[in-house]
Design a binder for these strands. Structure first.
Lengths: 110, 110
DNA sequence: TAGCGTTATACCCCAGCAAATATAGCGCTT
DNA sequence: AAGCGCTATATTTGCTGGGGTATAACGCTA
């Protein structure tokens, strides 16, 4: 009978830019793996879906979130920009606070 | 360029019971209208979808959320139980607090 | 007994998303 | 020049959810 409050949130602006849990996870994996391809595989996501998420973000952001290149050593790859890392930091900060908030709300649910 | 934090949340338990914005809105309309049918129409939702939402809730809840009847005056109808009204109250309370919380988080987003 | 407006349910069709496959282009290395 | 692994994109196929429609049962009223 234990009731619980769960939540989702996302940071967005007026230009259609939107970033939530899935995109943050993907960005973190791209930092770890160095490419969209490997990052997608590591979390069981298709390259196409990962590309759509990343591309959509880049197209709606005033500054690029990732820098992509094809060809060269290892075939190329993708790196997360400073702007991208800034979003990750902000998202994680809000998430931490939100977890506390909803944990308290859950407790008050009798 | 104004960034904003948006959110969704839902109350749930271990038996698969789940109630979020859509179901709350539907319950409120059922109280107003007296039937699933009219409630669904009033928010542009198909009866089928509304029925699935309501039925799923009732099947996973320990106590019924709504009491349904067919036949009789006006063809029958659906009323929201005290348990259902209790959930509405709880949901709105959490929502009010969450709106404050995320409003503050949005402000701190520089 | 006929009519009414519900709840409840089955059926078909279409849209939209997801996975799988294929192909091209890139730039470095060997 | 060939090979490599990546980005980028098109095409096809399959699955799932939702809308629309249709139908039956229900119990009160007239």
């Amino acid at each position: 009978m234990s009731k619980q409050v769960s939540f989702r949130f996302w940071i967005h602006d007026d230009n259609g830019f939107m970033i939530g849990e899935g995109r943050i996870l993907l960005l973190q994996k791209i930092i770890e793996e160095g490419s969209i391809n490997k990052a997608a595989k590591s979390i069981g996501m298709s390259y196409k879906k990962a590309w759509r998420l990343i591309n959509g973000m880049n197209e709606t952001s005033s500054e690029p979130i990732v820098a992509r290149s094809s060809g060269g050593v290892g075939g190329g790859g993708t790196i997360v920009t400073e702007k991208g890392k800034e979003y990750i930091e902000q998202y994680l900060e809000v998430k931490k606070n939100a977890q506390h908030f909803f944990s308290d709300e859950t407790k008050q649910l009798q």
